[in-house]
Simulated assay, not measured.
Amino acid sequence: MNILLFGASGNIGSAIADELLSRGHTVTGVTRTGRIEGAADREGLTVVAGDATDAATVADLSARGFDAVASAVGPRVGKEDDRKIIVGTAKALIEGLNRSGVRRLVVLGGAGSLETSPGVRVIDSPHFPEMWKNNALAQIEALGLYRQADHLDWTFISPAKLIEAGERTGTYRKGGEQLVVDAEGNSRITYPDYAVAFVDELEQGNAVKSRINVAH
């Protein structure tokens, strides 16, 4: 497949790019600067500059013959306006893809709106970190926008409660609206294994027009 990937230089975006390239897909990575270190030496990877919160940019880039669009855009926590970037990107993707006619969209979501018990979300916990609250609220708003985007075959992939650097095992468990936890009640996944799940969904399309949650 030929994939347009917004947010390709971040921890999660770069893991998704690596996974796509390892499976023989072609990737055009969009970053704010138009640069990814070492990109020139990576077969199948092209890098362009672009603003994911600008619908005209999304429309222009996605109209260039891509099979699907992916987004791993996220603000630097504590340093940028979470809502401006997360909700702004959602609005731009929805409008821009409507203009270009591309239907398939897979996006990095958040875990804050996942349920830990019926009617109780991760974000509702009194122990939810304050520094992540604005990010979680913005992701909840973005998910609501995607759910109204009837012209898109979207998938919103929420990671585990903890996503961090680590090895690629190639395995993960998948859930829906409930937080996926292990036998000890922990919810975690590494960047590379989240990328495995993300690319699996791009290839297989098993969760169109829905949100899924992936964890070890």
Rank of each mutant, 00 (worst) to 15 (best):
G7C: 14
N11T: 07
G13Q: 13
S14K: 15
S14I: 13
I16L: 08
V27I: 04
T33D: 02
E37A: 12
E37P: 00
E43P: 06
E43N: 08
G44T: 14
V48I: 13
V58F: 05
D60R: 13
A63R: 11
A63V: 12
G65I: 14
D67K: 13
A68T: 12
A70N: 05
P75T: 04
R76L: 10
D81C: 13
D81T: 12
K84H: 03
G88H: 00
G88W: 00
A90E: 03
K91N: 03
I94W: 08
S100G: 09
G101W: 05
L105H: 07
L108S: 08
G109R: 12
G109M: 12
G119T: 09
V122L: 15
I123F: 04
I123T: 08
D124N: 14
H127D: 15
Q139G: 08
I140W: 06
R147K: 15
R147N: 14
Q148T: 09
L152D: 01
K161T: 04
L162Y: 09
E164G: 08
G166M: 11
E167H: 01
R168H: 12
G170D: 08
R173I: 02
K174Y: 05
G176H: 10
L179I: 09
V180Q: 02
D182H: 03
D182S: 03
G185R: 09
N186H: 07
N186T: 07
V196A: 09
V196E: 09
F198M: 04
V199L: 05
G205E: 09
A207Y: 11
S210L: 05
S210M: 13
R211K: 15
I212M: 00
